[in-house]
C-alpha cells in the first residue's frame, strides 16, 4: 500500500454505491476483532478492519481496487464475534454485489464464478455443477480450467460428476422469480 496521504476527496458515485455498506458498518470502532477472527485475513491485501475503515471514509476506489472482500468465505466468524453486532459477512457480500454490478471489467472478472453460478440457477432451477463449472471456465479463462482438471478427473472416476446436457425438468422453474426480482430491484434502483 502506498504511504501517500489519503485525502478524502468526494467521489459521489462510488461513495453512493457504498452507502448501503457504510450504514451497515457505521458503529464500527476498529477494534480489530473481525480481522483477528478472519480465517482468510492472511490472504487479503488489506485487513477487514482497514477495509471497513476505508468504506466508512467513502474510499470506494481503494476498497474496490483491493478486492479483499472477494476473499471472504462466508464463515461468519466476524459476524458472530463483532462486539458491535455488525453484519460484517453481509457487508462483504454487499461489496461483492456492488463490484459485480459496477460493470467494470476488472471487477467483473472476480465475480465471474458467482455470476456463472447464478446464471446456471436462473436457467436450470437447480444447479448443474458440471455445466456451471464449464461456464465458469469459459468466463475465467483456460488456466482456471486447467487447475481443476485433475480434480475433475478424480470426480469423474468416482461417479460424482455427470454430464447432463440438454433440457432439465426444472429449467424454467425460477424464471418468474428472477424476473420479478429484477423488476423489483430495478424499480428500487431508480430514484
Amino acid at each position: 500500500m502506498t504511504r501517500s496521504p489519503l485525502t478524502l476527496a468526494a467521489d459521489p458515485a462510488l461513495a453512493d454505491a457504498m452507502r448501503e455498506v457504510r450504514a451497515m458498518l457505521a458503529a464500527c470502532m476498529q477494534c480489530g476483532t473481525c480481522s483477528a477472527s478472519c480465517p482468510n485475513a492472511q490472504s487479503m491485501d488489506m485487513t477487514p478492519r482497514r477495509m471497513w475503515r476505508l468504506v466508512l471514509l467513502g474510499r470506494a476506489d481503494t476498497v474496490f481496487s483491493s478486492g479483499a472482500f472477494w476473499m471472504c468465505s462466508n464463515c461468519y466468524a466476524c459476524t458472530l464475534r463483532c462486539p458491535r453486532g455488525l453484519p460484517l459477512t453481509s457487508a462483504m457480500n454487499a461489496l461483492k454485489r456492488i463490484a459485480g454490478a459496477s460493470g467494470h471489467p476488472a471487477l467483473a472478472r472476480h465475480g465471474a464464478f458467482y455470476r456463472a453460478f447464478l446464471d446456471n440457477v436462473r436457467r436450470r432451477g437447480r444447479v448443474r455443477e458440471t455445466e456451471m463449472m464449464m461456464r465458469y471456465f469459459g468466463a475465467a479463462g483456460p488456466r482456471e480450467a486447467l487447475r481443476f482438471t485433475p480434480l475433475g478427473l478424480r470426480m469423474l472416476r468416482r461417479g460424482k460428476v455427470r454430464l447432463e446436457l440438454g433440457a432439465g425438468r426444472w429449467d424454467t422453474a425460477l424464471a418468474p422469480l428472477f424476473e420479478s426480482a429484477a423488476r423489483l430491484e430495478g424499480k428500487e434502483a431508480r430514484p
Binding site: 462466508n74 458467482y114 447464478l118 440457477v121 425460477l174 423489483l184
Partner: peptide
C-alpha cells in the same frame, strides 16, 4: 424445490 442461491446469490443480488 429449486436452488437456494448458495453463496453466489448474496454476492449478486440482495433480494434473490
Amino acid at each position: 424445490w429449486t436452488c437456494c442461491g448458495a453463496s453466489a446469490a448474496p454476492a449478486v443480488s440482495a433480494l434473490l
